[in-house]
Computed example of a mutant assay.
Amino acid sequence: MRPISRFTAWATTLATAVGATVVIAGGPAAAAGGGYWSISCDSPNACIRLSVGRQGPGGPFWNMIGCGVHGVSDYYDRGYAHGWAFDVHYADRRWDRVEFGTNRPLDPNNRVTSVDVLC
């Protein structure tokens, strides 16, 4: 049997801590702040719009509140950076950056796995 590497031990410890945070907080540990669905991207939020004209419970825009990593899992076609720049991370490990004060197209055929709001 091969001994556990230092990296594997570290990764296992981190995964356990994240799992405990999810149980205690009752939500995704990766989400640094909250968010809400809306018919528009509200200032000063970072927002992503669902692709192909789809709607969330309150509209097509997911408004992210707060800095850091926000866990998501869906297809989006445009990003809007009203407050801070952010990085959109895809399932195939590619990413796009939306710079402060801009908006840009996203890959609507690639599932977004997280958004990192850069504050």
Rank of each mutant, 00 (worst) to 15 (best):
M1V: 11
M1S: 15
R2Y: 08
R2M: 02
P3E: 03
P3V: 00
R6L: 10
F7G: 03
T8Y: 11
T8G: 12
W10P: 02
W10Q: 10
A11T: 06
A11F: 04
T13Y: 09
T13W: 11
A15T: 12
A15R: 12
T16I: 08
T16Y: 11
A17C: 02
V18T: 08
G19A: 00
A20L: 14
A20S: 12
A20F: 10
T21V: 08
T21P: 04
V22P: 03
V22K: 11
V23Q: 14
A25M: 05
G26A: 00
G26D: 04
G27V: 01
P28K: 02
A29R: 01
A29N: 00
A30E: 13
A31R: 05
A32F: 09
A32G: 14
G33C: 04
G33F: 05
G34D: 02
Y36H: 09
Y36R: 05
Y36V: 00
S38A: 12
S38W: 11
I39Q: 15
S40H: 08
S40Y: 09
D42C: 03
D42S: 11
D42V: 04
P44R: 04
N45P: 05
A46P: 10
A46Q: 15
A46Y: 13
I48A: 06
I48G: 08
R49H: 08
R49G: 03
L50G: 02
S51A: 15
G53N: 06
G53Y: 04
Q55R: 07
G56W: 02
G56Q: 02
P60F: 04
F61L: 10
F61E: 14
W62F: 14
N63F: 06
N63P: 03
M64I: 00
I65W: 09
I65D: 12
I65K: 10
I65T: 09
G66D: 08
G66R: 05
C67K: 01
G68D: 01
V69C: 10
H70W: 07
G71V: 00
G71R: 08
G71N: 08
V72A: 09
V72W: 07
S73D: 15
Y76N: 12
R78S: 10
R78D: 05
G79R: 00
Y80L: 04
Y80H: 12
A81S: 09
H82T: 11
W84A: 15
A85P: 15
F86N: 00
D87C: 01
D87V: 03
V88C: 03
V88F: 02
H89R: 14
Y90D: 08
A91G: 05
A91P: 02
A91L: 13
W95G: 04
R97L: 02
E99P: 05
E99R: 07
G101D: 11
T102R: 14
N103F: 05
R104G: 06
R104S: 08
R104N: 07
D107I: 02
P108I: 00
P108F: 05
P108W: 07
N110F: 01
N110H: 11
N110R: 14
T113W: 09
T113M: 14
S114H: 10
V115E: 04
D116E: 10
D116P: 01
L118F: 12
L118S: 12
L118G: 03
